[in-house]
Structure formats: C-alpha cells, structure tokens
Simulated scan of single mutants.
Amino acid sequence: MYTTLLAIHSLTRWLVLPSLLFAIQRAFRGWYSGKAFSTFDEAVRLAVVTITNIQVSLGLVLYAISPITTYFSHHYQVAVHVGEMRFFGIEHAFMMIMATLLISIGSVRVKNKRHDQEKFKTMAIWFTLGLLVILIAIPWPFSPLAKRPFFRLVY
C-alpha cells in the first residue's frame, strides 16, 4: 500500500503544478487586461484548491505510514541531523501544508472580493506564493534538500 500511495502522490504533483500554473497565468492575464472574472475562472480556482487539497491529504496519509517519518519520529535526536531525514520528517510536510494554506486562503479571499480585478489580483498573488513554496518543497532530482525522480512508479 505504501509504495502505491507514494507513486500516486508523486504523480499527482503533475496535476497540481500545471493546474496551478494555468490558474496563475489566467489570474495575471485577467488582472492586467481588465477582463471579467468568469465562471470558468471560478471553476479553475476551485479545481486548483481541490487538487491541491487532495495532494496534501495523500501526503498526510503517507506521512503517517512512511518508514522515513516513522524512523524520524522514533530517532529524532539522530535523524534531525540527517538532511534527507529532516527534509521528509519536518520540512517537506510543513512547507506543503503552508503552500496549501496559502492557496486555500487566497481562494477564500478571491471568493469574498466584489470586483473582478481584485479577484484576479488576489488569486495571482496568493497562488503564486503557494507555487513558490511548493517549488522549494518538492524533492526534485536536482534538489540539494532531497532527491527523488520526476516520476515514481509502483514496482
């Protein structure tokens, strides 16, 4: 179950990133061009929040059953000094929860704005902040924090 869930979590990032980039692109375009905030923009906002929340939920389940985080919690004094252990034991989870909160807060703030330009501006700023945190927290193959493949398959 763990390896399957890990593969799903790894692949789901490829839903989060493009949907978030698409929403940000629409938000900046709408903000700078003076467009109306359409029902499609609303659907994009909701889709991004939903996909992001699904991803963080999968991550929290993984956090609870992962052998890395289990080791980290049982051997904290040693594990906190090992970069990759600390990354998955604290940093990755914390930053992804923070990114999800930024995106969710931004989404709620968009919903409460009255004017279209305020909606686009709010979505652009909050979603971009969330994306920046996500990009830092993903264990990319080239990351100095923890290296993982672009695609993790079940084996």
Rank of each mutant, 00 (worst) to 15 (best):
G34N: 01
M1L: 13
Y63P: 11
H92W: 04
A93H: 09
T39S: 15
A79S: 01
P67D: 06
V133C: 04
N53E: 05
L101V: 13
V133E: 03
I8Y: 00
A124D: 03
D41N: 10
I51F: 00
F150C: 09
R45F: 01
P67C: 03
V49T: 12
L58P: 02
V133Y: 05
Q117K: 15
Y155A: 13
T70V: 14
M96F: 04
T100Q: 09
E91R: 07
S73V: 12
K121W: 10
A7V: 07
L132R: 07
I68H: 05
H115R: 15
I138C: 01
N112R: 15
G130S: 06
I138W: 13
R114N: 14
M123K: 02
Q25C: 13
H115M: 15
L5H: 05
T100D: 12
H81I: 03
A79F: 04
F150I: 14
W126D: 03
P149Y: 10
T3K: 14
L131E: 03
M1E: 08
S57D: 10
H74P: 00
A47P: 11
V56L: 05
L101A: 14
R114A: 14
A23D: 08
Y76K: 09
L58G: 02
L62G: 06
T4A: 15
Y71W: 12
P18R: 01
A93E: 10
I125F: 06
L46M: 13
A43D: 14
V78T: 15
Y32I: 12
H74N: 15
E118W: 06
R86A: 01
Y2R: 00
E118N: 12
V61R: 01
T50E: 10
I68W: 11
V133W: 03
V49C: 12
L6R: 11
T50H: 06
G34P: 08
V133D: 05
Q117L: 14
F72G: 00
F150Q: 04
L131V: 10
A7N: 03
P141W: 09
D116K: 08
K111H: 14
I68G: 01
M85C: 00
A146C: 04
A124P: 03
E91Y: 02
V48K: 02
R26D: 13
W14D: 05
V61N: 02
I51V: 08
S19I: 01
P141F: 07
N112E: 13
G83N: 14
G59K: 02
T12C: 13
T70K: 15
V82Y: 00
V108N: 12
L20H: 05
A79P: 07
F87I: 00
T128Y: 09
H9D: 04
T52G: 04
